[in-house]
Amino acid sequence: MKKLSIVVPCYNEQESVPLFYPAVKKVLATLPVEPEYWFVDDGSKDNTLQEIKKLTAEDNEVHFISFSKNFGKEAAIYAGLQAANGDYVVLMDVDLQDPPSFLPKMYSLLESGQYDAVGCCRIDRKGESKFKSFLSDKFYDVINRISKTEIVSGARDYRMMTRQMVNAVLSMKEYSRFSKGIFSWVGFKTKYLEYHNIERVAGETDWTTRKLFKYALNGIADFSQAPLSLAVWIGMSSFILSIISIIFVIVRKIINPASSIFGWASTISIILLIGGLQLLCIGIIGRYIGKIYLQVKNRPIYIVKEKK
C-alpha cells in the first residue's frame, strides 16, 4: 500500500480546519493508500493551531508544523513538502476550494504511470470580484508572454505529485519562491483537471488585491528577465530621443539664428520625463538586486516553533 501525504498550509483558518479534515478523510477511505496529514500553521493569530492539535489528539495520522511567525504561504508549502514522507504528495488549501472529490481521479492518473503530477485549474472565477478576476487573467497573459516557463491560466496549487517530482521541487532552495512557476520549471509530465470555481467553506480569504498584485510581481521577477530588458530599451530609447532633440535644436538655430530655444516649461517637462524613466529603470534593477541580497544572506525560509 502506497503512502499519500496531504500537505495543508493554514493561516487564520480556525473555522475551516474542522470541516476540511472529515471531508478529505471520507474520500481517502475509498483509496488503497496509507494517508498522513501535514498541517502547516503559518503563524496564525486565531485558534487554528488549537484546532489542528485537536485532530492530532484524535488521529495519529495527523501531524503539524507551527511557524514562529507568519512567513507566507510559499514557506508553508515548502515546509510541508519537506516534512511529507509519502510516495505521492498532494497539496491542498484548507478552505475546501480544492475539491476532495478529485483525489481518486488524481490518484488513478498517477498510478497509471502516464503522469508525474496531476494539477487542477479553474475555468471560471464565479464568486470573485470582476476586478480581481481581470487582474488575475492579465497576469497569466503577461507572464506567459515574457517568461520561458509556461504557467497554466487558472492553475491552483492543488496538485498530486510523485516523490520524484517533490524531490525536484525541494532541490530548488531559493528564498523568494513562486510555487506555480517552480512546479512548471522542474518539468515532469503534468495533467490538469478543469473545474468551476468553488467558494470558501468558511472564513474569509487573506488574499487581498494588494497581496495578489505583490505576489504577481514576485512571480514575474522570479521567472522572467523581461523587466530588465525593458529597462535597457527605455534607457536606449531615451538616449536616442535626446540626441535627436539636440540635433534638432542645433540645426534649427543654424537655419534660423533668430529662433529661440524652447522655454522653461518644455525643458522642465523633458527633465521630469527623463528623470521618471531613470527612476523606473533603477526601481526595476533594484527589485532584482533586492532578491539577490535576500538570497545571499542565506536566511532560513521558515522557522519552526512547534512540530509533531
Results as ranks from 00 to 15, higher is better:
Ile285Pro: 00
Ile270Thr: 15
Ser259Arg: 13
Arg287Gly: 05
Ser242Ala: 12
Val232Cys: 08
Cys281Thr: 05
Ser245Gly: 08
Gly235Met: 09
Gly275Ile: 11
Ser259Val: 10
Val251Gln: 06
Asn256Pro: 00
Ile243Asn: 03
Ser224His: 07
Ala221Gln: 06
Ile246Met: 10
Gly235Ala: 05
Phe248Ile: 04
Ala221Met: 04
Leu272Ile: 15
Ser245Met: 07
Ala258Arg: 12
Pro227Met: 02
Pro257His: 05
Gly235Tyr: 04
Leu279Pro: 03
Leu230Ala: 08
Ile243His: 01
Ala226Glu: 08
Ile255Lys: 02
Ile282Thr: 00
Val249His: 03
Ile270Cys: 09
Ile270Asp: 05
Ile244Asp: 01
Trp233Tyr: 15
Pro257Ser: 10
Phe239Lys: 13
Gly290Met: 05
Ser260Ala: 07
Ile271Trp: 15
Arg287Leu: 07
Leu279Lys: 14
Ala221Lys: 07
Gly283Asn: 06
Leu228Glu: 06
Leu277Tyr: 06
Ile271Ser: 13
Ser260Val: 08
Ser238Phe: 14
Leu273Asp: 08
Gly290Val: 00
Ser238Glu: 06
Ile240Gly: 01
Ala221Pro: 00
Tyr288Ser: 03
Ser237Asn: 05
Ala265Arg: 07
Val251Leu: 07
Pro227Ala: 02
Ile285Tyr: 05
Ser259Thr: 13
Arg287Met: 08
Pro257Leu: 09
Tyr293Leu: 06
Ile289Glu: 02
Ile240Asp: 00
Ile284Met: 06
Ile234Lys: 11
Ser224Asn: 05
Ser259Trp: 14
Thr267His: 11
Trp233Ile: 14
Ser237Met: 12
Leu277Thr: 06
Val232Asn: 09
Gly290Arg: 12
Leu279Ser: 08
Ile255Val: 15
Pro257Arg: 09
Ile282Leu: 09
Ile246Cys: 07
Ser229Ala: 08
Thr267Val: 13
Pro227Gln: 04
Leu241Gln: 04
Phe248Trp: 10
Cys281Tyr: 01
Asn256Thr: 14
Pro257Trp: 01
Ile282Gln: 03
Val232Lys: 12
Gly283Val: 01
Leu273Cys: 12
Phe262Met: 12
Ile285Ala: 08
Ala231Gly: 06
Trp264Ala: 13
Gly290Glu: 14
Leu272Ser: 13
Arg252Ile: 00
Ser238Ile: 10
Gly275Tyr: 01
Ser229Cys: 05
Phe239Asp: 03
Lys253Asn: 14
Phe262Pro: 13
Leu272Thr: 11
Phe223Ser: 04
Ile246Lys: 00
Ile261His: 10
Ser266Cys: 02
Tyr293Gly: 01
Ser245Ile: 05
Ser260His: 11
Leu277Asp: 03
Leu273Tyr: 15
Leu272Asp: 04
Ala221Arg: 09
Ser269Gln: 13
Ser260Phe: 08
Ile282Trp: 01
Ser269Gly: 09
Gly290His: 12
Leu277Lys: 01
Ile274Gln: 11
Phe239Leu: 15
Ser242Arg: 01
Asp222Arg: 13
Ala221Asn: 05
Ile244Val: 14
Gly276Ile: 07
Ser224Glu: 04
Gln225Asn: 04
Gly286Leu: 11
Gly275Ser: 14
Gly263Val: 07
Ser245Thr: 09
Ile254Gln: 04
Leu277Gln: 06
Ser260Glu: 15
Met236Val: 15
Ile268Thr: 09
Gly283Gln: 03
Ile292Asn: 02
Ser242Val: 00
Pro227Lys: 03
Ile247Trp: 00
Tyr293Val: 10
Phe248Ala: 11
Ile285His: 00
